[in-house]
Every structure is written in C-alpha cells, then in structure tokens.
Design a binder for these strands. Structure first.
Length: 886
RNA sequence: AGGCACGUAGCUCAGUGGGAGAGCGCCGCCUUGACACGGCGGAGGUCGGCGGUUCAAUCCCGCCCGUGCCUACCA
C-alpha cells in the first residue's frame, strides 16, 4: 500500500443513517446473501480445500428457544472464520423429524395412527382433525402415508426454524438440506443396516430386554435414566424344603414373588451358608426354588439374601442366564401381570389351589396395583411357607431408591423377553475408545464423558423399536411349512433393492402372494431406533454409499457441534457407525456447547416451562446482539440468559457502525503509514490479529471476541481515532494526514474482518460502503481473514510502546479535565507535563498527536526523575473558556 | 457413591506462579465536530474454607464445603 495511490472512496456521512437500522440490515443482507450465493458450497473442491460441518439437525417438533441461537451461533462463528480463511465451507441444515416427538405430533394433529398393515393411499393429504373427528376412532394410515403427513406437519416447524436461522445469520448453504425421515436418510439408514449385516455386526435374539410398558417398545441403554423413587423393603419369610428353617428376604418388589425362580446370598455369608444347594419355598405360592451362592449378592443389603425373579433387574437376567433358571415371565408388554396357572410345569407349587387363589387376586393388575394387593395377601397367615404366621414380617420400611426409566417414559422399565435386533458393540470397547482418542474434543474434558460411557457400556445396542413411524428394518423372515418364522435366516434386503418397506415390498426370490403364507415370508414390522439414522448425519451429508465421489470430498467431517448430554447417544453412535462401516472417525473435532440457564440458573427446557423464545430478544437487541451474547460464552460452559450481555452486543454493533462512518468519511487520500503513532497502532493491531487467529485455531472463539472487542474500544475508538483525528483533517501536513487516514482505514478494515464471524450484519453493512468496491469483494464474509498480507507494507514503529505511551499521556490530560469538571472537548490554553526524562524522550515522537487530540495550545515539559516509567503528571492546566473553544 | 466441571466486585463473566481485571449496575462530571444507542473519572473484592509446596499462591497439590452435569445404585 505504501507509495502507490489507491482507489479510495470516502462516504458522505450525510448519506448514512444517523442510527444503525439493524432490523433493516438483517432483512436486506439475508436476501442479498441468498441471491449472491455467498455461502454456497462448491462441490468441485477437494476434501483438503473444504471445511465440513456436521450440523446438528434440530428436532423440528421441539419449541424454539434461545438455546438454539446460542449453540448454533457457536458453529456459525467457526464456519465463517474458516470461510474467510479461504476454505470451501460445507454447512448443511438437517431437520430431525424421525422419531417419537413427530409421531405424537402427527397423531394428534390429524388424529391418525400409523399402521404398517394399512392400505397405502398415494397422495394422501389431510386437514387438521376437527373436534368431531377427534371423538371418533383415529384413522389408520400406511407407513409411507404417515411419513407424508409428517412432512406436511413439520414443514411449518422447519419454516420457523429456518426463519430463526436466517434471522441470526447462520451462514448455512440452504441448498444442502435434509430431513432424517426423508428418502435419502431412509435409504442410507437401510444401507447402513445392510452393510453391518454383511460385516457381521448385527444380530437378532429373543431375550429379556428393557421395555417401556406405555410406549410398548424396547429401549436401548443410552435412552435409560435413573430416577429416585420412593419404595419400601418388604420382609418376606421363605421356607426351606425338608427343614424347619426359614429365612427372611427383603424385597422392594413383592409383586414379583410369583415370578421367583431362585434365591441367592453371598458364598461367605455365614447366615445362609448351610442353605446353598437346598430349595426354598416361596410364601403364598409355595414354589420350590433353588438356593445358590453368588458373589454378586451383597451381604450388607437388605437381609443379605434375595430372591431372583424373572425379571426384577439386570442382575436377575444375569443369574437367570448363568444358572439356567426357569422363566416365569409375569409382566407382559402392557405392564400387566399375565394369567398363569400354578401347579403347571412352568409354575410349580406344592399347594396349587392356594397359589392360584392368591394369584387370582393379582392377575391382570398393573405392577403398582399388584404390589398393593400382594402386600395385603402377605399379611394373611394362610400364605405362610412355614406355618408360623403372616409371611410379611413387620411393616414395610420406606426407602428411596433409583429406578430405571425410559428417558421419555413415565413408568419404570420392565424386563420383557422379546426378539430384538442388536448392533454388536460390547466386544469393541477398546476400538471405540481408541477412536475417541483420535478425535479432538473441545473442551478437552468432554472426552471423559465419552470414555466413561464407553467403558461403562454393558449392553449391545438395541436398534429395533416396536413403533410404527420411522425407518423400517429392511428384513423379512422365511416361514416354514407350519407358518413359523425362521429368525436365524433373515432375508435382509439387497443393496440394489433399497430402500424398501418390508410390509409392502417383497424379498428377492419371492412374490407378493407368498406373504404370510406357509413356505413364504413375512415382513419385519419393527423400525429402527431414531439414533440408527441420526448416527449417520455425516454420511447423510456426504451421500456416502449413494455417491462415493461426493463422500470422498466430504468425509470425515471437520466438526461435529453438539451438546454434552447426548455424547452417549449421538456422538457415541456416530463414532460407532463410522468405525463399523469404514473403520474411521466420523469427524476430527467435537465442539461442545454448554447449556443456557434461565436467570435462576436452571437449565432451560421445555419441560421446565422456563424457555425464552428468541425472536423478542433478537428484535430488542438485534441479531448481532444475540450473537454477541452467544459467542461470549466459552465452549462447554453453561451460560445464563442475561439481557445485559445482549445489550452490550447491540451497543458494540452501533459503535462499529459509527466508527465506520467516521473513518470512511475522511476525505483525504490514504498514503504511506509513516507517523510513529500510526505505525505503533498498526503494530498492536497486527499483534491482535495473531492472537485472535490463534484463539480461533484453538476453538476459543470467545477469547478472540474478547480480545478484538477490547482492542476495538480501548485502542481504536477511545484512543487511536481520537489521537489521529486532528491530523487526519490537517491541511498543513498532507503526509501525516495521508498516514493517519491510511492507518484509520487499515484499523477499520482489519477490525471489521475480525468481527465479521461474530457480527455478520453490521460488518457487512459497513464493508459495503466502500471496502466492497475497493477490494473487489462484495461480501466481507468472503473477504480474506486478516493476516500477514495486511501488514506487509506497514513499517515497524521505532518504539513498540509509543502508542501505549501516547494513550497514557492522553489519559492523564483527560483526568485533569475530569478533575476540573470540564468536557473532554475543552481546549487547554496551557499545561505543564511532567514525566521522567526517559519517558519524555520516548513520548516525543507521538507527543504532537497527543497534544492535538487533547487540544492543548501551549505546553511545557518537565523532567521529573522521581516519576515512574510511563507515568505522567499534569499541572498548571489552564482551560479555555467554553465560548472560545473552536 | 465415583468422575468431570465450576465457586473471583451487587450482577454476568474473563484471567494469571510475582501488580486483582472487564462490562453492566452505582456515584461524580462532560451536550464534543463518528457516536448521549455517547465520553471522561471514581467507589467497590480477605479470588468458597482449611492445610501444604514455593523466596512468592487467586493460580500448583491435598482435604473440606457449596453448585451443576455425567455415570453407578431396583434384593
């Protein structure tokens, strides 16, 4: 830039609005960016030139809240930085409409139920159900028709999300959209299953599985949560066969007594040692059950001896398998106690009549009802296994204990034997952990979440769900001559066949007439766990098996933004899938945002009823203001919704607008940057660029913002502009004037670009005034990130500290004005400035600018060796009269 | 019960082995020529507590207290 004349425009400030019209700018630039394709992904670029974002697809049936603005802004800031660094950014948007929330919403909205067996009605389109319709039975619709209705309902939700994303300026490429239930996602999910099947990673088995009795579906380990629940220890007296002995078992689930298949205690427990190998007799039902020793029994819990039921908990399942115990399944899929007959082979009893009499009181009841009733029965001495009075010893002792629930469920999970499909993961913990090591986690401690979860895994991934809406499992089963299903030879759809719906499509080698006929086939009606599809978001973006060339340009992705509570699901499963399919990691970085807390520091959640909708905040504080609040938060740190911070962001945008207006309205041509204070300012600016760039590279955008913001206020607007202002308009010093204008413009130019990822609107606005034209880059968001090239021609200052020194001196003069209670603009007729000799000497090159900025007419310098380096003392200041100030 | 994180000014939060910080709020002053949607100045904190390491600890280590999350806990 030095020497040569640049084509520089100044603006006429009169043509610029007095105040920044943020709302207008937001609307204008969003349309302009779309029109220009500013954020368009270029599919011709190689993987190395591309920065790939694995955008989290928001649950479209969820409500919009300020937390969405928060975390998506974090991602956008990174995407914008990378784009300015010259990367071809792939930043898609997905919509998560696969799964229960949408299923429920569609059911209510249209008053329909999905039924895979229903006749398809192509082109089905419904109106929202009327009150009258709601009183009737829900209409049954086929799966694909249900999916169509889902699109109808979610389109509206998607629009409101898109409105928000556009309003806050997400630099998403809107031509890259997908939905987790759309045909490509379904296709890829089924291809994923086919691939896992071919590689031997999936299996189906009939075994006790965690089951939600309300949703009536199997649930995976990752979807369970413990909730503290009140319960009670019921002390029940058991008999010992062929002996007078008895013992007492403490149980919290007396209703499972009829399902008791064994009794166990710790092998070293003296109290029960003599019982091992014998048979116990259960109270009420008089069932003989084996007594065995197990290390898993805790002598300190309850009475130290416990009953094994099918099934009370995971340990019961373990003992049942290990010991080959009987199966006496009581709780059915609906959560009610089944009808069983004591005295049969499966339910032995030494007194079947009494047992059946007691059980008749329980059959058909749900778990809670059965517990209440059996407590009463257990008070009846007639039920004793020993003839020594009521089986219930004393009163139940209330306790609070943890009970497993489906995270979306309302009643405790039960173990119910069902046939399910699983992805084998338990035997791959070590590889999964190794993959986690290859990924960079931001902040790094989030890696521990992944590690803990993976190490603690104790079940394979149950991927089948007994729901109706979702991606069908592409499998049929051959039927034998008697119509029995052969689960060991599943007919998994061929790759070329996909996508399929096995309830309407036909496996290769069969024809439609053989459906559900002996010797024919039957279609799987189960669907996939929604995570089975969501774990493929990087592959959905890259089109994976459907377009290997594109896949190679987009996979693995660079960043996966997400929140920490779904590390065990979304992150974990995505890593597992990439590993099982291609033995690689799905992305290089996981970027974890914290949560937004309400002003009382509680997590903002729809269920808590404390969510803040974002639009009013954006309208009040502008999109840039909302983004400022978001970007101020470090990754992984929970952040309080604090309007004060929004306000600061809005103020910052206004200040940038005004500073831009001032700098760009300087009419003089820019020239070489020669004045010492200009050079020193530029040197500090350069250092800022280095710091901010490093912060971005470390995924510490909050630091980059803080540094840029601090510099902008304290070094640029509050000081450099003030100190260079007079010279920038000086008629007598054309060289100094050109230098000042150049430095001011460079400062604005660089700071605008440093702010651009955070405040896309105001920076684009100011950029558009003259820089867009001068630099031939219509959008700041496509301009280059500041770097060495911007400073190549700026000579170093003779003293790196001279700008700082000038500011100190200027501040000292300001303080004297403040002390005298005169305005900063007041002229100073004369003053005496004291500093130590070395400081005075170093101040000399910038003193002229300082005195001009402070409007000092005459001054005297005083060398005071006693003063510290860099300290200034002002005395004998005489201020001009207000009227005489010019 | 284990793991992780956090605890700094009234509020929201930075920060570092050597001098305690920012913004907001508060107080005082200044209508100035980019900006009153401004500016200048000021008050305000035993950096959760107790020990230890060190010449030196808000920072490193240990213990404790408090908060949040993750994981475990159904006899």
């Amino acid at each position: 830039m030095s020497g040569e004349k640049k084509r520089v425009h100044s603006i006429d400030p009169a043509t610029i609005a007095k105040h920044f019209d943020a709302a207008g700018a937001e609307q204008r630039w969003d349309a302009e960016w779309e029109k220009r394709g500013t954020y368009r992904y270029d599919p011709s670029c190689s993987r190395a030139e591309t920065f790939v974002v694995d955008t989290p697809p928001p649950t479209v049936s969820g409500s919009l809240h300020i937390g969405h603005v928060f975390s998506y802004t974090h991602t956008d800031v990174v995407a914008r930085y990378k784009r300015m660094c010259g990367m071809n950014v792939f930043y898609p948007m997905g919509w998560d409409d696969n799964g229960l929330p949408t299923e429920r919403r569609v059911q209510n909205y249209f008053h329909v139920r999905c039924d895979p067996r229903a006749e398809p009605e192509p082109g089905l389109s419904l109106s929202p159900a009327t009150a009258k319709q709601r009183k009737e039975r829900p209409r049954l619709v086929a799966r694909n028709d249900f999916i169509g209705l889902c699109h109808d309902v979610t389109r509206e939700d998607e629009r409101s999300f898109e409105d928000l994303w556009r309003r806050i300026g997400l630099s998403v490429d809107w031509s890259q959209q997908y939905a987790t239930i759309d045909s490509r996602s379904r296709h890829l999910a089924q291809l994923s299953f086919r691939d896992l099947f071919e590689k031997g990673h999936v299996y189906n088995t009939d075994s006790p599985t965690s089951w939600d009795v309300d949703f009536q579906t199997a649930v995976a380990q990752a979807e369970m949560e413990d909730r503290p629940r009140p319960g009670a220890y019921y002390r029940l007296e058991f008999g010992v066969e062929g002996s007078d002995r008895s013992f007492v078992i403490a149980t919290t689930r007396p209703e499972l007594l009829p399902a008791c298949v064994g009794v166990t205690a710790h092998p070293d427990d003296e109290r029960y040692r003599d019982l091992f190998g014998k048979s116990a007799t259960t109270p009420l039902f008089r069932a003989p059950v084996p007594i065995f020793a197990s290390e898993l029994a805790d002598p300190g819990k309850g009475t130290g001896v416990l009953m094994v039921c099918t099934f009370g908990d995971a340990t019961d399942v373990h003992w049942w398998r290990e010991r080959g115990l009987a199966l006496r399944q009581l709780v059915g899929r609906d959560g009610r106690l089944a009808s069983v007959t004591f005295g049969s082979e499966d339910f032995p009893s030494s007194d079947p009549d009494a047992a059946n009499r007691f059980y008749a009181e329980l059959a058909g009841k749900n778990v809670n009802q059965a517990r209440k009733r059996i407590e009463e029965l257990l008070r009846d001495p007639a039920g004793s296994a020993t003839g020594s009075g009521a089986p219930l010893q004393g009163e139940p002792e209330p306790i609070e204990h943890a009970v497993k629930f489906y995270e979306k469920g309302d009643r405790p999970l039960e173990f119910v034997p069902t046939r399910q499909w699983f992805v084998r993961l338990l035997d791959k913990k070590a590889e999964l952990l190794a993959k986690g090591e290859q990924i960079q986690w931001h902040p790094s401690f989030m890696h521990a979440r992944y590690r803990d979860w993976t190490e603690g895994l104790n079940l394979d991934w149950c991927v089948s769900r007994q729901r109706y809406f979702g991606v069908p499992i592409p499998v049929w089963y051959p039927l034998d001559g008697a119509g029995g299903r052969n689960y060991d030879r599943p007919l998994v759809a061929e790759r070329e066949q996909l996508p399929v719906d096995p309830t309407s499509d036909v496996p290769v080698g069969f024809n439609a007439s053989q459906r559900d006929q002996p010797g024919g086939f039957t279609g799987e009606t189960d669907i996939f766990d929604t995570w089975f599809t969501s774990s493929l978001t990087p592959q959905i973006g890259s089109h994976w098996a459907l377009d290997p060339e594109r896949h190679a340009r987009l996979f693995p992705a660079d960043i996966r933004p997400q929140s920490h509570e779904i590390i065990r699901t979304w992150a974990f499963y995505t890593i597992a899938k990439a590993m099982l399919h291609e033995n690689c990691i799905p992305w290089h970085h996981v970027v974890v945002s914290g949560w937004v807390l309400d002003p009382d520091r509680k997590k903002m959640a729809k269920s808590q009823g404390n969510v803040t909708t974002p639009m009013p905040l954006i309208e009040k504080y502008t999109a840039d203001g909302a983004r400022y609040w978001s970007a101020s938060a470090r990754l992984g740190t929970d952040t309080t919704e604090d309007e004060k911070v929004f306000k600061i962001g809005k103020r910052l945008a206004t200040k940038i607008f005004n500073a831009g207006k001032f700098v760009l309205s300087q009419t003089a041509e820019a020239g070489p940057i020669e004045a010492e204070i200009d050079r020193a300012f530029v040197a500090e600016l350069h250092a800022l660029v280095v710091r901010a760039t490093r912060s971005f590279e470390e995924f510490n955008h909050a630091q980059a913002l803080t540094d840029t913001e601090t510099f902008f206020w304290t070094r640029f607007t509050d000081s450099f502009i003030e100190l260079a202002k007079v010279r920038a308009r000086s008629e007598e010093d054309p060289v100094g004037r050109a230098s000042a204008v150049a430095a001011l413009r460079l400062g604005l130019d660089v700071l605008l670009r440093l702010f651009a990822p955070f405040l896309p609107y105001v920076t684009e606005e100011v950029w558009s005034w003259t820089f867009a034209d001068e630099k031939g880059e219509p959008s700041i968001h496509r301009a280059s990130w500041p770097g060495e090239a911007d400073f190549a021609s700026a000579p170093a200052p003779s003293d790196a500290e001279s700008f700082a020194l000038g500011i100190s001196c200027w501040n000292a003069i300001n303080k004297s004005k403040s002390d005298a209670e005169v305005s900063m603009g007041r002229g100073v007729a004369r003053l005496s400035l004291a500093a130590n000799p070395a400081t005075l000497e170093r101040l000399a090159p910038v003193l002229g600018d300082v005195l001009a900025g402070a409007r000092v007419a005459t001054h005297t310098l005083e060398a005071s060796p006693a003063l510290e380096d860099g300290a200034f003392q002002i005395s004998d200041a005489e201020f001009e009269e207000r009227e005489s100030a010019t």
